[in-house]
Amino acid sequence: MTAKRGLITDTFKVVKKVKRGDRRDKKPPSPPAADAELPHLSERETDLQELKKFDLDWRFGPCTGISRLQRWDRAALHGLNPPQEIKDILLKETTDPDYTHSLWREYPL
């Protein structure tokens, strides 16, 4: 006496997925309007953003262990053409550590 073996699909109920047509009809979210009001940044915040961009730009060499002005001078010495605006910002605020030190000043070498 042999038991008749069936297929595994005979044991489980077949469930078919319902196709959704609404996925194709959805539009991607629109970008924010160009005339949307951006928050107004103070001069200090704008300057610090520019200095952070300078820190993150590896074209001017590493920035750990030296001040931003030293890095700017080194990049200029090697002909890397660092932005003059950065030097102007750095010379404007020579005593504020937020201006003089790079982003990674608090991390040990």
Rank of each mutant, 00 (worst) to 15 (best):
W72Y: 08
R74E: 14
T95L: 10
W104M: 06
A75L: 03
L80P: 00
R68Y: 04
S67F: 02
A76L: 04
R74V: 04
S67N: 09
W72H: 04
H78C: 13
Y99C: 03
I86R: 00
P97L: 11
L77V: 07
D96Y: 05
D88Y: 00
L77H: 13
I89G: 04
W72N: 02
Q84G: 00
H101P: 00
G79L: 09
L103N: 04
T94S: 08
K92M: 04
A75D: 02
E93C: 06
P83E: 06
D88W: 00
I89R: 07
T94V: 13
I89K: 06
Y99L: 08
I89T: 06
L77G: 12
I86F: 05
D88G: 00
W72T: 07
I89N: 08
E93M: 08
D73L: 10
E93H: 15
L69H: 05
L91Q: 14
A75S: 11
K92D: 12
H78V: 13
E85W: 01
L103T: 06
E93A: 12
E85P: 02
W72I: 01
H78T: 15
P83V: 06
D96S: 04
D98L: 11
E85H: 09
E85V: 10
T100F: 05
H78P: 07
T95I: 02
Q70L: 06
S67E: 10
T100H: 07
H101L: 15
L69W: 01
R68L: 03
R71K: 14
T94A: 07
L80Q: 07
T100M: 14
P82G: 04
Y99K: 03
L103H: 03
E85M: 03
P97E: 11
E85S: 13
W72Q: 04
T100Q: 15
Q70Y: 12
L90R: 10
D73T: 02
N81G: 09
Q70H: 09
P97I: 15
K92V: 01
T95Q: 04
I89Y: 02
T100A: 14
